[in-house]
Design a protein around this nucleic acid. Structure first.
Lengths: 250, 250
DNA sequence: TAAATAGTGTCTCTGAGACATTATATT
DNA sequence: AATATAATGTCTCAGAGACACTATTTA
């Protein structure tokens, strides 16, 4: 914050606003990157789908509020995944009623169940992100949530490049094939399997092999099972072929 | 934002807060990455150094407020550089007087002059970041600005890796040696000159050669002069030797 | 000429992509 | 055996680091 005006806190001089958190909660379902949306029951935007969110309490910072909302919305108490701040959205007219500034967050977790429905008659479900952002019969989201979701998706995609965050999308223990499918789902196109295996295994602290073997498949050679390692960043990064390729051929 | 409680906007139910922007403004001065700080005249933290910032007006979003503050603090009307949102800081007790949520921003520009002093008797100057974050006689910053500055520095460093942002730190036209010195200043250690030149030149859209030659040096072969190209991201990234080697996470 | 800075060539090493080959399980 | 999946080996190519070498200017 900081300020240069000693009396700047006079509420008559500067207006106060409401501050909320919004959440883009991601998981992998049926091999597709999916996000949790809630159908609004009230105006404005009644009937539209929106990101879950809520107000920050007086004793919370934004991250604590996000964790709390996450538990409330998903019904998951012991959250196994990761949560981080995304960006703050503050256009003066983003909410037609009041000035509301929202601190958006991104969360990831492995293979979450369908969200708690009973709670308060709201409709809530997982959407494959391709069904939300991909033109055609994609729903129009409430408020500026389409923009938030776009930014959130880009955050997830880029984080897979230079961090070990992909491991947050799978349950331990996991196989390298499962981890590879996370990259395929999030990026749309998987990295080449050979290079992927080499990189994951050779990057110290990305994953740790366990002594047991197994996997979900009923047939075929059983896979080595791994746990998350201690490393957080990938150096160098896992390469993704950006959609915006520099001049073809090249 | 979004909400699930139709009457949630009742001010008696949820408290309103003040929202500010803070700015970490960076430039290169005397070969060192430097940040603009302001000495506070009033309590709290009177006498402490702080990041410049101010309140968001009712008709502005956070980015517009940041641009406005930037012009006010630096006295630069035609801002040649870049500004982007960094992160929002919202600890309930980060300001002892009121609940204040701050949307921090990062700005870069080439070789800025000493900040406007006369304005309102406040003391303002450029600090080499090594003098602010480096132990010893580093000043204790006001509020949570030390944390913000840490995050801002890390943002600048990492952005040089995967974007063409370094060109925002030099005035056009510039030489490759000047651009190389930007990397040296921001990272502490420069990338190897040979690889650097190859990468900058071979990355389409990073820089564009001009027909003229020159440079600042009085002696030696005159350098080719360049302008910024149209590209924004570097694919693959410029490699930096991280201080924190991969292996041990947080 | 010497000194200074700009720019190139070349060697080696790492690692990515492609894909053939081998390994280990079930039926 | 046949089939399915896991895992490895190998070839090639792009690019990074190191550094010697060449180029172009001023004094």
């Amino acid at each position: 914050m900081s300020d240069q005006h000693p009396d700047a806190y006079d509420a008559s001089t500067y207006p106060s606003v409401f501050v909320t958190v919004d959440l883009a909660v991601f998981t992998i379902r049926n091999g597709a990157l999916s996000v949790l949306l809630i159908e609004r029951g009230d105006e404005p935007y009644a009937g539209r789908w929106a990101l879950p969110g809520g107000f920050i309490n007086p004793d919370e910072d934004a991250e604590q509020a996000a964790w709390r909302e996450l538990a409330e919305e998903t019904g998951v108490e012991q959250w196994a995944g990761h949560l981080e701040q995304l960006k703050t959205y503050s256009a003066p007219d983003r909410d037609p009623r009041h000035r509301i500034v929202s601190v958006a967050h991104v969360a990831f977790a492995p293979n979450l169940p369908a969200p708690v429905a009973g709670d308060d008659a709201r409709n809530a479900r997982w959407w494959a992100v391709d069904d939300v952002v991909g033109g055609e019969d994609a729903p129009e989201l409430a408020f500026d949530h389409a923009e938030i979701l776009d930014d959130a998706i880009e955050r997830v995609r880029s984080k897979l490049e230079y961090t070990t965050l992909a491991t947050e999308f799978v349950e331990e223990p996991f196989t390298l094939a499962e981890l590879h499918r996370v990259y395929a789902a999030v990026w749309g196109r998987p990295p080449s399997l050979g290079a992927f295996r080499r990189k994951v295994i050779s990057t110290k602290g990305f994953v740790e092999a366990t002594s047991t073997k197994g996997g979900t498949q009923a047939v075929g050679r059983p896979a080595t099972l791994y746990r998350r390692g201690g490393a957080a960043i990938l150096q160098p990064a896992m390469l993704r072929q950006h959609a915006t390729e520099p001049g073809a051929g090249d």
